[in-house]
């Protein structure tokens, strides 16, 4: 099984709208990855839908880019809706 591919597994829960990453499985191909994911990640009624993606198909940010990529957003509070004061007439949004 040394030549099996690693797949990342995404599961949508009963009440969830989006698929969430839950872990990974080894399998010979995507079909088998779905079955293995079903066995490993939906044993306790966690899901109603499964996606699998070969791990190599995922492009990720590098950890040493973290500061350059994400820190600049930390002081831009005005990008949050809560930054703005709503006039009373607007009521609940």
């Amino acid at each position: 099984m040394a030549d099996w591919t690693l797949f990342e597994v995404f599961v949508r829960s009963k009440h969830g709208l989006n698929h969430k990453h839950v872990g990974s499985v080894h399998a010979a191909d995507a079909e088998m990855a779905i079955e293995n994911a079903r066995e490993l990640y939906t044993r306790r009624s966690e899901g109603v839908s499964i996606w699998v993606v070969p791990s190599t198909a995922i492009t990720a940010t590098a950890s040493d880019e973290k500061e350059a990529l994400f820190d600049p957003a930390d002081d831009k509070v005005y990008r949050h809706a809560s930054f703005y004061e709503l006039p009373d007439e607007v009521g609940h949004m």
Partner: peptide
């Protein structure tokens, strides 16, 4: 079993 995933599947 030949692989961890397969083992869990067989036990299920």
């Amino acid at each position: 079993a030949p692989a961890l995933e397969e083992e869990v599947a067989l036990m299920n």
